[in-house]
Amino acid sequence: MATVRLEFSPEPAHVRTARLVGVAMARKAKLPEERLDEVRLAIGEACGRAVTRTLRHGLRTPVVVEMRDDNPYTVLVTDSAPDDTLADMEDEVTVEASLAILSSLAEELQVTPAENGTGSVVRMSWTPRQRRSPR
């Protein structure tokens, strides 16, 4: 198993980089080609959510993405932003759509508070192949 950890300043431009790395790791984890678009979109959603939450508070704390080339392929996206109320209708649509996309595309999805109490962790996973039966 290999783990790639990507830490980036909360700039929207970096989300694309995270998508590209996430898809490269998904290939390495042997996810079938037809699932890669789902992975790309889900990682983009989770990272975009983290960047938006961070910038909304005027924070510069980094977003951390951890990708585990395992079975299942697991991606964790962590931000350090407190929860807040949304500014306008467009934000509300975006947040609701983002959660709907994440729920639909990841085989397993958990959104939990960060360990230190401020921020959140999105954990997503996809199974590339059947697990071996225990002997």
Binding site: E45, G48, T52, V93, T94, V95, A97, S98
Partner: peptide, 9 residues
């Protein structure tokens, strides 16, 4: 590629 931000717009 289209994400939730684009949908919001």
């Amino acid at each position: 590629f289209l994400d939730s931000t684009g949908l919001g717009v």
